[in-house]
Design a protein around this nucleic acid. Structure first.
Length: 695
RNA sequence: GGCGAGGUAGCUCAGUUGGUUAGAGCGUCGGAUUCAUAACCCGGAGGCCACGGGUUCAAAUCCCGUCCUCGCUACCA
């Protein structure tokens, strides 16, 4: 047995497997797990069981402007934020059984060194473009301001607290320099424009490389969603991308004259994979380099679809420009997971948080792993529901997998005091069942190697079904009364299936696998590996003493599911309440200010969609004074034909503005309901005529 | 609007180098069974493969058009 094992471990191929670095501004939720960490962990565990040389790498992403922002909001230091979430994330991954070879962090010394060296090498090779641009600068604080650090009045909707990158009221994406009355959120002072120098990675120079490598080279082996997204980016035309920022949180730019500048978080984060590998290799006393430089190493990045551009375009370009490194063989990005029909949202607290799940469902890691795998968003966005979670547990894990094991172990203890019986001559059926059992490692392996984890979970369940069917067909509990010798063979065969399941379930259900191996007393030197299932004549030898049955899975009752749904209901209510909190009153307006505004009653007499835009309607409005054109961004709330004849409130003396080439002369007053749908501010009563002033 | 991905049974999804009566699991209905967490096992019902055209001896699969969902992007009072 051991000879066979060492043979499999020798022939191992080298793999470097990375899982997206979690950003340390919040905990991990089921969306992260389903999209990235569970599939990556299954893949890594499987490859190890096959005897491959695997480095499964991850770590916390701790730089970027959002960290100091959050720190400031909470009145703590950035270090406190990253320590808090790094530890929370690391611990919950560990408790959940995500078996990283190393979980590092980008604030570590080794990462700062690695990222600096990487940048300097590209710099020395002349791979960057340097450019001087004008950015907002806070003179009082003596620093440049990232877009998020500037607030001001939105030039579009006059919302007074728009951020430099986006107005949260009207949803416009902005440049910080567009804001009216910009204000630094650090000191409150008015920023000035100041020149600053930055380094850009000229992605456009790598277009032909990317086309050849991905669009031609990986046409057939990369997932359609990944390939399509990359093609879309490349076809749109790549532009040089700034890889440095004016910020005091991050990795200092390691060249002369770059004081107060750090590497852009998206430049340093993927290098974190390399630093984490170095850190691990050092600890293990081996060389990290083969894992990143040997052409025989297979590099695979597990990510969510939001990261495709970084892992398929920017990071490979960095690796290519550097010159020493291998490129990813595949980037199996998943789509998104929804929760009970709504998008997961950290800010809206619409999520199932891993650390909470681990507390509320102790020892049920595998249930969540299984549910998320069986329902993984592999080809399109998918929905997680608690009802489905319950059904997967009760109907599949409990009823099929757990039940089979329980039947076998209970019967073995009942008939033979837990000693594996000596088999007699195998019947045709016995041999066929064992033969079929031997096909499972290959079948499940194929699914996993093709990144079809959903399929792998179903095939695994079929292996347990094979066992249940065998017992149902052979009926040892009946035969025992007439032919006890035959029952020895039946139970022996059933036990071989149980033993195989202990191995086959390891990648998907590591905790269950461990428990099952304990039950079968097969957790020591006689532990089996993946290829042993098909390769060995006997998995569990006659004469061996096994342990008493204990349940691998327990039923999840309705009440537990109701509790979770209630929790989500409460979240919804909290969000609604939060939305109802009215904005603070604006500064006092004088009567004169008000009388400047000419508000009138008008009637929409024509409405049609603005071509080539999907939020705009072009309206003809009878204002009583005239009939004029007003362009309004309401196309997502109303169909043109439904609002013709509608009486509305119009600001008639708003300065005209051209929108998509059409002059808009005025503004229709709108408000918003709880679902975010627009509602007319409504003077729609009989006898109110067009042109009547509103005051 | 542009680009990308998706639209197959009540639900979650396979299936697209074109080829016999379109598959699986769950759910549902019926049967059988009691070793087992009323679980397992067997069987039935359930689909104009989003819609409309076209190519072909043959289309879920290829081509054209339309509609819907999601993402990126543009645009947005």
């Amino acid at each position: 047995m051991s000879k066979n094992q060492s043979e499999t471990t020798q022939k191992g191929k080298r793999y470097t497997i990375t899982a997206a670095l979690p950003y340390t501004n919040g905990p991990i939720h089921i969306g992260h797990l389903a999209g990235v960490y569970v599939p990556a962990d299954i893949y890594s565990r499987y490859l190890r069981l096959k005897g491959n040389d695997v480095a499964f790498i991850c770590g916390s992403d701790e730089h970027g402007v959002a960290i100091p922002m959050k720190a400031k909001k909470e009145g703590v230091s950035p270090q406190q934020i990253i320590d808090k979430y790094h530890n929370l994330i690391k611990d919950s991954f560990e408790a959940f059984g995500i078996a990283f070879d190393n979980y590092s962090r980008t604030s570590s010394e080794i990462h700062h060194q690695t990222a600096s060296d990487f940048f300097r090498k590209l710099y020395e090779q002349g791979e960057f473009i340097e450019e001087v641009t004008e950015q907002l600068y806070d003179q009082e604080a003596g620093q440049f301001l990232a877009d998020r650090f500037v607030t001001g009045t939105c030039p579009r909707c006059n919302h007074e607290e728009a951020y430099g990158d986006q107005c949260e009221q009207c949803g416009s994406s902005l440049n910080a320099t567009d804001l009216i009355n910009p204000k630094s959120t650090i000191t409150g002072s008015k920023p000035v424009l100041k020149e600053t120098r930055h380094w850009f990675l000229p992605l456009d120079r790598y277009e032909s490389f990317l086309r050849e490598w991905i669009l031609e080279g990986h046409k057939n082996d990369w997932k359609p969603n990944v390939y399509g997204q990359v093609k879309s980016w490349v076809d749109e035309g790549l532009k040089p991308r700034a890889v440095t920022r004016d910020l005091d949180w991050g990795i200092p730019v390691p060249v002369e004259g770059a004081d107060g500048k750090v590497l852009y978080v998206w430049f340093d984060a993927p290098i974190g994979y390399i630093s984490a590998t170095k850190e691990w290799a050092e600890r293990e006393g081996k060389s990290w380099e083969p894992y990143w430089k040997d052409q025989d190493t297979k590099l695979v990045h597990f990510i969510g679809k939001d990261n495709i551009v970084f892992h398929c375009i920017i990071f490979p370009t960095m690796l290519k420009a550097h010159g020493d490194f291998i490129l990813p063989e595949n980037v199996p990005a998943n789509e998104f997971l929804n929760l009970e029909g709504n998008k997961l949202s950290t800010s809206k607290n619409w999520a199932v948080w891993l650390h909470e799940y681990l507390e509320e469902f102790p020892d049920k890691q595998d249930v969540l792993r299984y549910t998320l795998t069986a329902n993984a968003p592999e080809t399109k966005d998918n929905d997680f529901t608690w009802k489905d979670f319950q059904a997967r547990n009760n109907n599949e894990l409990v009823a099929i997998f757990g039940n089979f094991i329980n039947r076998v172990v209970v019967l073995t203890n009942k008939y033979y005091d837990g000693v594996i019986p000596q088999p007699g001559t195998l019947t045709q059926v016995d041999m066929e069942v064992l033969e079929e059992l031997r096909t499972y490692p290959e079948k499940i392996g194929q699914s996993i190697e093709r990144y079809r984890f959903r399929e792998a979970s179903q095939v695994l369940m079929n292996a347990a079904r094979l066992g249940n069917k065998y017992l149902a067909d052979e009926e040892p509990w009946k035969v025992v009364k007439t032919d006890p010798e035959r029952v020895q063979t039946i139970m022996y065969v059933a036990l071989q299936i149980a033993s195989a399941l202990a191995v086959l379930s390891e990648p998907l259900l590591p905790f269950t696998s461990e428990k099952l191996r304990d039950m079968l007393a097969q957790n020591g030197n006689d532990r089996l590996f993946w290829d042993d299932i098909a390769g060995f004549e006997t998995l569990l030898p006659a004469g061996k003493q096994i342990n008493k049955a204990s349940l691998l899975f327990t039923k999840i009752e309705d009440i537990e599911i109701e509790k979770q749904l209630e929790k989500l209901e409460n979240t919804k209510k909290m969000n609604e309440a939060a939305n109802k909190t009215a904005e603070p009153q604006k500064e006092t307006a004088t009567f004169e200010d008000f009388t400047k505004m000419d508000l009138r009653v008008g009637t929409i007499i024509e409405a049609e969609k603005m071509p080539k835009a999907n939020k705009l309607l072009v309206l003809k409005v009878d204002t009583g004074i005239d009939t004029r054109t007003i362009v309004s961004g309401i196309a997502q709330s109303f169909k043109p034909e439904d609002i013709i004849g509608k009486k509305v409130t119009v600001l008639v003396n708003l300065a005209p503005r051209k929108l998509r080439g059409v002059m808009s002369e005025g503004m229709i007053l709108m408000t918003e309901n709880a679902e975010g749908k627009l509602v007319f501010v409504n003077p729609d009563e009989d006898g109110v005529t067009n042109g009547t002033t509103i005051n």
